[in-house]
Design a protein around this nucleic acid. Structure first.
Length: 440
RNA sequence: GUGACUGUAGCUCAACCGGUUAGAGCACCGGACUGUGGCUCCGGGGGUUGGGGGUUCAAGUCCCCUCAGUCACCCCA
């Protein structure tokens, strides 16, 4: 077996590269539509940037090494620390709120499995400097609009939303103390993936009563804000969170994405830095991992960069998204087929072909031709195989009158108006084709 | 890092109970069909059966190790 890429890394042959480029294009298009601007940082960072926040145990999951200057460095596993550093360094000069996005390639040293490799491209979209739920709504709308742009619908993808502050207030009401909170969050995070008895057992080991555990389970399933208010609205801290979430929903409706969103308090998102509303995007059939996850992390910039700015953001990787698009038949994208194939007729000259190709290329068209003399039938086959849209034949009369013969080889669906659509009959000279190309 | 399962051509798969030189389709390359050929026909290249070791007269097939893949755990970019 020929040597392939390293475990967890990918070769992008033209077909796969086209899919990757397609995903990146949609990401950029939608992010720009929401007036986010693109940035990037180094793929290699000081190891300390990641250990400072998460401790030494994270080193086990990093690609890290000592460089020739003796520096401890790591390939970036996430973008947020870089973003925090960059924003902190110019915090006073940046127009607020900061609306930035990036398409970094990220690395993690882990055993690969479905939807998780050692390398991936991840769209990061962040808003920094706005604490109101308007920003939370704006952020989620970007993620959902991207789904829509890929041709997915609310039947394919669901956005599940929770609020850590609400969850904390509810748990307090159920008698869960502050010191138990992180562990209980961890159990809730897994509540869907493990049998109920296991969760109950773990909760009771933490000292959570079985009545409280039952209440907890009742909160995880098909809950509405109205039902929450009816049960817990008399607690001010909870009522306040509910009111905030109601405004959030109103804004999501105004932004045209409400039908994708559902409340789901089992969404916790990792453990560390999220502080408010959090969300994940899942395929509706539950076949894949989360497509996207994010939320509010108001304290992170202070702890990382020393600048106290509220912040929120999400990450969306290309691996799970690509799997979903393939499974739904939405990932067939052209790899960059030529517009024209120029062929020499039996009495034609390869140099005339090159002259014609050059003129078409200068007009902006993508043009291929056989690099060695071939029969017309051979050239026609090659043109089809290459995916060319038009087949132009130049013969001996091309040199004198510039006349050519044009055939439509294949009509590309959704490619817009073809030359044929614009004409009663095929053009007869190269000049008339070029005029059309320039026009398009 | 732990566990289970799986590795035959670029892809999808054959190969009897262990038995001759590991085959087919698709893809690729070449040729024919001498004129809109996305067809049809003919031919070709391509494999140390993931790698190594062992058992046997004989291993793609059985055993061990290793590498890789898939899935789950851990963890969650």
């Amino acid at each position: 077996m020929a040597q392939g890429a390293l475990p967890g890394f990918r070769d992008f042959y033209p077909t796969e590269f086209a899919q990757r480029a397609y995903i990146a294009r949609i990401w950029r298009d939608v992010a720009r539509r929401y007036a986010f601007v693109e940035y990037d940082g180094p793929p290699l960072e000081p190891l300390e940037l990641y250990t400072r926040k998460s401790g030494d145990e994270i080193v086990a999951q990093l690609y890290n090494f000592t460089d020739k200057g003796g520096r401890e460095v790591a390939l970036r596993p996430e973008m947020t620390p870089t973003l925090a550093r960059m924003v902190a360094a110019r915090a006073n000069a940046l127009r607020k709120p900061v609306r930035w996005f990036s398409l970094p390639q990220l690395f993690r040293y882990e055993r690969q499995q479905k939807g998780r490799l050692r390398e991936h491209f991840q769209l990061n979209v962040d808003i920094i400097g706005e604490s109101g739920v308007t920003a939370d709504a704006e952020l989620l709308a970007v993620a959902i609009d991207i789904m829509r742009e890929f041709g997915l619908s609310p039947d394919d993808v669901r956005a599940r939303v929770s609020d850590r502050r609400l969850l904390r207030a509810l748990l307090e009401r159920l008698g869960v103390g502050d010191e138990q909170l992180p562990a209980v969050f961890g159990i809730i995070d897994k509540i869907e993936r493990q049998p109920r008895e296991v969760s109950v057992e773990k909760l009771s080991a933490l000292g959570v009563s079985s009545e409280s555990a039952d209440s907890l389970f009742s909160l995880m399933d098909g809950l509405t804000l109205d039902a929450l208010r009816a049960r817990f609205g008399d607690t001010p801290a909870i009522a306040e969170r509910i009111a905030d979430l109601e405004r959030y929903y109103t804004y999501l409706a105004d932004l045209g994405v409400a039908e994708w969103v559902q409340l789901d308090l089992s969404i916790v998102r990792g453990l560390a830095y999220y502080t408010g509303i959090v969300f994940e995007l899942f395929d509706a059939r539950g076949e894949f991992r989360a497509i996207c996850g994010g939320g509010r992390y108001d304290n992170l910039l202070k702890s990382l960069g020393g600048v106290d700015l509220p912040a929120l953001g999400f990450g969306m990787g290309d691996v799970v998204l690509g799997e979903l698009l393939r499974a739904r038949g939405l990932s067939d994208v052209p790899i960059g087929e030529p517009d024209f194939w120029v062929a020499a007729a039996e009495d034609g000259d390869l140099r005339d072909v090159m002259l014609a190709a050059t003129q078409l290329r200068r007009a902006g068209a993508s043009v291929e031709y056989a690099l060695r003399p071939q029969t017309l039938s051979k050239q026609r086959k090659a043109a089809f195989s290459a995916g060319a849209t038009y087949f132009i034949t130049v013969g001996a009369d091309f040199a004198e009158r510039g006349s050519v013969q044009v055939d439509e080889v294949q009509h590309v669906e959704g490619a817009g108006a073809s030359l044929v659509d614009r004409l009663e009959e095929m053009p007869k000279t190269l000049a008339s084709i070029i005029a059309l190309v320039r026009d398009v």
